[in-house]
């Protein structure tokens, strides 16, 4: 059974469809794990060999944002799953609030010094939603100018937080996610935990209004405790051109060991969608409406954060 459990993450949609198709042929033995010849192990090996050959020969496609679905499914998401399942034991709520198709804008609180919350949200949506949707996140330009981080971010389907890109993604019916607090949220001190910072300039709200897609407020509990930032060492931040340089109880004191996140218990709650399609066309240019909506979204997230915190038994369980 262990073997079976290992296969699942490596399968892509095509393989899943194929299995579904072949299992229809093979009814009533619907739940037999493999309809193709060979043992499950051999199937997984063949799957991996096929993947490796595609990588080595460049036989895959990327979209205009550089999103590499093949790599994301087989490597990027699979490598995050242990952290998601075993370490943070993420509890996902309200996943049905995300539509199965069409554009939608996910707005979440940002925290934890290292932006693990965005990665865990991506995995939560992909693994728990019935349509296995891919989250397309909007990130700061620092993400894309940083070596390796920028490369991986693009391949995982994320792009620069700018109106042109969010409009384009929402128009294409993608599920877009923003963390409007930005560095102010992710880089805040532990004493400020679960206090939402100022939302940026509200560009994301204007984008949602323009595309007339629902806004889904998301509250993430647990990320704040992964790397409790006690202080920000500004001289080093300035030296490395970073927005902040964190001092946590374990970093840089314990060196690389200090980079291991604390195993806090996470809750990701997807809230009730806020519709935007009843506003007249051109509302995106109504600055006051944009600010009010941004405030509404921010309030909703802050209130559900407080509620979730009272429901949580402890930081670790």
């Amino acid at each position: 059974m262990m073997v079976d459990a290992q296969i699942i993450p490596f399968e892509d949609d095509e393989a899943r469809n194929r299995r579904r198709l072949s299992s229809v042929d093979a009814t009533p033995a619907r739940d037999l794990p493999q309809a193709q010849p060979g043992t499950p192990t051999a199937g997984a090996v063949a799957e991996w060999l096929d993947f490796l050959r595609r990588r080595v020969t460049g036989d895959y496609t990327v979209d205009e944002f550089g999103y590499d679905a093949d790599l994301t499914d087989h490597v990027l998401l699979a490598s995050l799953r242990p952290l998601y399942q075993e370490w943070f034991r993420v509890d996902v709520r309200g996943i049905e609030n995300i539509p199965s198709e069409g554009g939608a804008l996910i707005v979440a609180n940002h925290s934890g010094t290292v932006a693990l919350d965005s990665l865990m949200t991506q995995l939560a949506v992909h693994d728990h939603h019935s349509a296995h949707r891919h989250l397309r996140m909007l990130g700061a330009n620092l993400v894309f100018s940083t070596p390796f981080l920028g490369e991986v971010a693009r391949k995982a389907g994320h792009t620069l937080a700018c109106n042109a890109d969010s409009d384009r993604l929402l128009d294409a019916g993608e599920l877009v996610a923003v963390w409007p607090e930005g560095f102010k949220g992710v880089g805040k001190k532990f004493s400020e935990r679960y206090k939402l910072q100022r939302f940026g300039r509200g560009g994301f709200i204007a984008s949602a209004l323009k595309a007339q897609v629902p806004i889904i407020p998301v509250s993430i509990v647990g990320a704040e405790e992964t790397y409790p930032m006690l202080a920000n060492f500004t001289p080093l931040a300035r030296l490395f051109n970073l927005p902040y340089f964190p001092i946590t109880p374990t970093f840089p004191l314990l060196g690389p060991v200090g980079m291991v996140p604390l195993p806090s218990k996470w809750i990701i709650e997807f809230g009730e969608p806020i519709p935007t399609d009843h506003y007249p066309v051109g509302s995106a240019d109504d600055a006051l409406l944009v600010f009010n909506l941004a405030d509404d979204v921010r309030d909703t997230i802050q209130q559900s954060l407080y509620r979730l915190l009272t429901e949580r038994q402890s930081v670790w369980r």
Partner: peptide, 16 residues
Amino acid sequence: ERNIAHALGSATKSEA
């Protein structure tokens, strides 16, 4: 890839 897969007694994706 096909040879390895055959050795393991499984079909490759394209063959399937």
